[in-house]
C-alpha cells in the first residue's frame, strides 16, 4: 500500500505540474497580486514596512488558499471526468489508497506553497532591515491548516458535483454567508412577529442553522488568533488555539476523505 501511495503521489504531482489550468491560474493570481502590491511597495514610508509585510503575507495566503482549493477541485473532477480513474481501480489499488494519495499530494503542494510564502515574507524583514517577527511562522502554520480544510472540502464537492456546481456551492454555502443569513432571518422573525411569513422564516432559519453547524469553517478560531495577525508578534500568539485548529483540520480532512471515498464508490466509474 505504501508503494502505491508513493506511486500515486508522484503521478499527482506530475498532474499538477503539467496542468495548464493550474499554470495559467497561478500566473493570473500572481499578476493580480503584484499589481495590487506595487503601489504600496513604491510609495511606502519606513514606518509602514511591518504593515506592508503583513499585507503581503495576507495576500499571498489568500492566493495560496484559492490555488489549493482549485487543486482539490481540479484533481478530482479531472480524474472522474476523463475517466482515467477506472484505469487505477482496475488495478489492485483501492479507492481509499488512491484518495489518500490525492489528499497527501494536495497537502504536499499546499505545504510547499506556504514554505515559499514564509520564506518570501521572512526575506522582506531582512531586505527592509526590520526586526524579524516570529508571528509570521504562527500565521503560516495556521493558514496552511486553513488551506487544507478548503482543499478537502473542494475535493469532496468535486466527487459529488460538476466542478462549476461545486464552486457555486462552495461560494454560496460558506460560514460568512450563512452567518449573515442567520442574522437576516433572526431580524425578519423579530420584525414579523406572527403569521405565515414568520413560520416560513423560522423554517428557513432552522435550515440555515443546520447548514451553519454542518458545513466546515474555513477559518476556525480566527477571532482568537486575530491579535497575532495584527501585530505579527509571537508573544500575542495563542498556541492552544493553533493546536485546536490542527485537530479541527485533521477531523475535517478525515471526514471529507471518508465522505469522498463513500460517494466515489457509489459512482459508476465508466
Amino acid at each position: 500500500m505504501f508503494s502505491q501511495i508513493v506511486t500515486n503521489i508522484k503521478v499527482n504531482l506530475i498532474f499538477y505540474r503539467r496542468n495548464r489550468l493550474v499554470f495559467v491560474a497561478s500566473l493570473f493570481i500572481i499578476f493580480m497580486l503584484v499589481l495590487s502590491s506595487i503601489p504600496g511597495l513604491l510609495f511606502m514610508t519606513k514606518s509602514k514596512h511591518v504593515e506592508i509585510i503583513r499585507l503581503v503575507f495576507v495576500e499571498l495566503s489568500r492566493f495560496a488558499t484559492i490555488l489549493t482549493a482549485g487543486l482539490g477541485l481540479l484533481f478530482m473532477s479531472h480524474h472522474i471526468r476523463s475517466r482515467s480513474i477506472k484505469m487505477v481501480f482496475t488495478k489492485p489499488c483501492l479507492p481509499e489508497t488512491w484518495l489518500l494519495s490525492g489528499f497527501l499530494s494536495g497537502a504536499i503542494v499546499c505545504f510547499s506553497l506556504y514554505i515559499i510564502i514564509f520564506l518570501l515574507t521572512s526575506s522582506l524583514f531582512f531586505i527592509w532591515d526590520v526586526p524579524f517577527q516570529w508571528g509570521i511562522f504562527y500565521m503560516t502554520v495556521n493558514e496552511f491548516l486553513q488551506a487544507l480544510i478548503v482543499f478537502s472540502y473542494m475535493t469532496f464537492l468535486a466527487v459529488i458535483f460538476h466542478p462549476v456546481a461545486a464552486v457555486f456551492f462552495a461560494f454560496l454555502f460558506q460560514e460568512g454567508v450563512l452567518y449573515y443569513g442567520k442574522i437576516v432571518l433572526s431580524s425578519g422573525i423579530k420584525a414579523y412577529n406572527a403569521g405565515i411569513l414568520t413560520s416560513v422564516l423560522q423554517f428557513l432559519k432552522v435550515i440555515v442553522d443546520i447548514a451553519y453547524l454542518v458545513l466546515p469553517s474555513f477559518k476556525p478560531f480566527s477571532a482568537e488568533m486575530s491579535k497575532v495577525y495584527s501585530s505579527l508578534r509571537l508573544t500575542d500568539a495563542e498556541w492552544d488555539y493553533l493546536f485546536l485548529a490542527f485537530g479541527y483540520t485533521f477531523f475535517i480532512s478525515a471526514l471529507f476523505y471518508l465522505l469522498s471515498d463513500y460517494f466515489l464508490k457509489k459512482k459508476r466509474l465508466i
Binding site: 482496475t90 488495478k91 489492485p92 489499488c93 483501492l94 479507492p95 489508497t97
Partner: peptide
C-alpha cells in the same frame, strides 16, 4: 469491486 486484490492477476484494455 474496484481496486480489489482480484486485480493483481487481471489486465484490462478499455
Amino acid at each position: 469491486f474496484p481496486g480489489s486484490g482480484m486485480f493483481s492477476e487481471v489486465a484490462y484494455l478499455p
